[in-house]
């Protein structure tokens, strides 16, 4: 092994670096959690669009509660479920700011369902990044509004029974009927091609805001190996085989008129 010449290293063009829109704070997410992927995709898009300095991120309550430590922009930490209302207040006062919320399924689809639907109905010019991993992670594995039928969680120890505990909510399918939505897509943080599609969707969701088109939301199907009690590879397989069939991927609304719908 030859010695590395530092001068030679400096001449190399970096191929992969930390986006400026991420801080250097080490993330506290569990091994193999896809929050890190989602953070990075959002940060890359903010860099690409050159809007970091005028972006305000709204963190929610859940595993991503510390998002304000990771996104390198102005940040507000919101109460559980209220991020779209907080984002509304920010955007109404600072219409030139780029405002996005980053919410999990418990936050957005359970306690915060009213806020996200009404923000959409107002065509609030904000972007919502919605992480759906079908479980309450931060509180250690309870049933989420998006937990699949039969899914074992700490509060559905015999598997989610739809008769007893209700049906999973499909957020994109709900929101597609709401006037005021400019962009709406569901992507999965699984195979690399899916991650690339997710990045493209996030890009569009911020473009919608920059064009003043209205409300934009990207749902990212994510894995939670820790509380799915699966290895990372098993979790990715479960994402593909159980989550995607229940939550079809696709673009549901596109203000430019080219939404392909369910794929």
């Amino acid at each position: 092994m030859s010695a590395v010449n530092e001068a030679d290293l400096r001449e190399l063009e970096p191929l992969y670096t930390r986006p400026e829109s991420l801080t250097e704070t080490p993330m506290r997410y569990c091994p193999a959690c896809t929050h890190g992927t989602a953070h990075r995709l959002v940060a890359e898009v903010l860099d690409e669009l050159g809007v970091r300095e005028r972006t305000v991120a709204v963190a929610s309550v859940g595993c991503s509660v510390y998002a304000y430590e990771y996104f390198n922009c102005d940040c507000v930490q919101a109460a559980h479920g209220r991020a779209p209302a907080v984002a509304t207040g920010i955007k109404r006062v600072r219409p030139d700011s780029v405002v996005f919320t980053y919410q999990g399924d418990g936050d957005l689809a359970s306690i915060g369902l009213a806020e996200v639907i009404h923000a959409a109905a107002r065509a609030e010019n904000i972007t919502v990044i919605f992480i759906n991993n079908a479980v309450f992670g931060m509180t250690q594995g309870q049933m989420a509004p998006t937990s699949l039928p039969g899914q074992v969680t700490t509060t559905t120890p015999r598997g989610r029974s739809v008769e007893q505990g209700g049906h999973p909510l499909r957020v994109c399918e709900l929101l597609r009927e709401v006037e005021g939505v400019a962009y709406l897509a569901r992507r999965a943080l699984g195979a690399p091609r899916q991650v690339r599609a997710a990045r493209k969707a996030i890009h569009k969701a911020f473009e919608a805001q920059l064009e003043g088109a209205g409300f934009a939301l990207v749902e990212l199907l994510s894995i939670c190996p820790t509380f799915w009690h699966k290895s990372p590879l098993e979790a990715l397989k479960h994402l593909e085989q159980a989550m995607v069939p229940y939550y079809p991927l696709g673009e549901y609304v596109d203000w430019r008129g080219s939404a392909g719908g369910e794929e």
Binding site: V58, A78, R82, A85, I90, K91, R92, E115
Partner: peptide, 19 residues
Amino acid sequence: AESEVAAINMVIGAAAAGT
């Protein structure tokens, strides 16, 4: 707002934005 809950959280956002 759609509720008092949302109203006070809009107030939080607006206050955070400096007004």
